[in-house]
């Protein structure tokens, strides 16, 4: 049984071709089973195209290719309901050079509708070097996010690879809003208190990960911190990855990330775990509470 059953969704864009290098990096680190799929409700692509896409995967241990009929977001969701996948690879779409006010993000649909972590990339990874193994796994911890499944998965991921785990957390700039939020808190919102609180929550871990803290906007600071810590992969929660009410989309944190991102949906069932994950999960139940509460 493979350690990771991966579903690679492609529309044959440049981003999909660039993502191949990152998939090869994962394939070297894990025993994977790869399914490459193209979903379309328009004219079906020739099977030859799907066979020729990511030809490198023909040499991987297990690889298959399937075409899905239907709207991409729904067809992929349907597929994941029938078969269990551990990771969905969904690179970002290429730039079209025009504003897309009514664009519906397929990645957002997948994060919100599919109970499976989603791997994605931002633009500008052409020059990134994926030859070396993953050495640093970063995870963004939002102080008010009570769902910490992404921290749990990031921890397992790092442990399996023998990589460093770095926690990136951002305190908001002082404003009337933050003062109101802090009114009921037992401690003032101070960087030292935030780090102490995180360290206290992780105190039962064998090795407490490094905690990086910045003050400002998370969508700006997290990509900067990920770059500064030379992160090879960044784990985000659903709330950190998607935003927007009327037309939900991918957040700036994802689109400006200097490394690939794994978005962990909040709908991920408590029973979901990767095969290499320790059971029971690394984080005990009491951990699943807001960090700054």
């Amino acid at each position: 049984m493979p350690e990771l059953n991966i579903l690679f969704t492609t529309n044959f864009s440049d981003s999909c071709f660039r993502a191949i290098r990152a998939v090869a990096q994962i394939a070297d680190a894990f025993d994977i089973r790869l399914t490459i799929t193209h979903a379309t409700r328009c004219k079906p692509v020739p099977h030859r195209d799907l066979q020729s896409f990511f030809a490198e995967a023909d040499h991987f241990a297990e690889c298959r290719r399937i075409t899905l009929d239907g709207a991409p977001g729904e067809a992929v969701a349907e597929l994941t309901r029938n078969e269990r996948f551990d990771l969905i690879i969904a690179p970002g779409s290429d730039r079209i050079g025009l504003p897309r006010p009514f664009h519906r993000s397929i990645r957002t649909q997948l994060i919100r509708n599919v109970a499976c972590p989603l791997w994605t990339t931002s633009r500008g990874l052409e020059a990134a070097d994926f030859r070396r193994p993953i050495r640093t796994v970063a995870v963004a911890l939002d102080g008010w996010d009570s769902n910490l499944r992404h921290l749990e998965l990031a921890s397992s991921f790092a442990e399996k690879l023998g990589a460093r785990l770095r926690i990136l957390t951002v305190l908001p700039s002082i404003s009337e809003g933050t003062l109101a939020l802090q009114a009921a808190a037992p401690q003032p919102l101070h960087p030292d208190n935030a780090i102490s609180r995180i360290e206290e929550l992780l105190s039962h871990w064998h090795r407490i990960p490094a905690v990086d803290l910045a003050i400002g906007s998370p969508s700006r600071e997290i990509p900067s911190m990920a770059a500064a810590s030379s992160a090879d992969i960044l784990f985000l929660s659903e709330a950190q990855s998607t935003g927007g009410f009327f037309l939900p989309g991918i957040t700036r944190t994802v689109s400006h990330s200097p490394c690939p991102v794994i978005c962990v949906p909040s709908s991920l069932s408590g029973h979901f775990q990767w095969s290499f994950q320790k059971s029971p999960a690394v984080l005990p139940a009491p951990m699943l509470e807001p960090v700054y509460a």
Partner: peptide, 9 residues
């Protein structure tokens, strides 16, 4: 800038 080992295997 790609890891060759999955293919070389």
């Amino acid at each position: 800038g790609q890891n060759p080992f999955p293919e070389l295997g």
